[in-house]
Design a protein around this nucleic acid. Sequence first.
DNA 1: AGAGATACCTGGGAGC
DNA 2: TGCTCCCAGGTATCTC
Length: 274
Amino acid sequence: MPELPEAENIRRALARVLTGRKIAGVEIFSPAMREPLTPLAAAGLEGTAFAGFRRRGRYVIADLSDGRALLMHFGMSGVVRVESAKIPRRKHEHVFLHLDDGRAFRFECTRRFSVLKVCTLPEPGGVPAELGTFGPEPLSEAFNGDSLYRASRGRTGCVKPFLMNNCVVAGIGNIYATEILFAAGVSPLRPAGELSQRECVLIAAESKRILARAIELGGSSISDFRNVDGREGKFAQELEVYGRAGLPCGKCGSMIVSQRIGGRTSAFCPGCQK
DNA sequence: AGAGATACCTGGGAGC
DNA sequence: TGCTCCCAGGTATCTC
């Protein structure tokens, strides 16, 4: 499903094919999503152009020529395509933003966990209010072992939900949190506040390495910008523990176990992760 | 403030 | 075969 690396690849692809392109019309087919789509139709988007594309965590922010922004989140099944509006609508395509060249920005979401909404920005280049509490970007210098160590002090909850908290670091989801903690050799059950500084340095470093690698591999799967479903990204082949419960660990041979932590399925290797 | 539970939604798979 | 049940996922919102 789309996580940060997939959102980054979607951002890059949209920037390539949509920057400068004008919206000619809005067509909504099924308004019910995480937030209703109906306001999109009344937002007066006709005639505005896509000025640029940014990303914050798993959100992609499309800056519009009128100073507003189109905020998008892909939930767990969101897919965007830019192709002819004449291609018959797929079952779960909920909205078309018609473009001035006969194509459409087509938003598909099977499980309706996605977000697509128009936002005002607090200042030019700022982020919509709902993203204001987000912590640092994992690939930025602001996120490092020291910052993670400081943020974790006093936290009694498990490290895995801590790492998945957008306010701590933006955009790390279940799959990548699982893989990062395996690579760092840290059990997902460890209380965040008990991590050593050295472990925080390792977790931050592995976060950057794994996310950068996944962005690199995700890029190749969407070259034609048709199918941006994260499940088809090549990083899936490099997962070491996620989805491998019951199978032997590739490093030590121990059985990978699965446990619900913070309401999420978590796979880890009891031999490698302490 | 922080932690945990829950609702939202659909398709796919397991089990009967 | 068809039915029911459960699970997957991120986030907002609720309670404690």
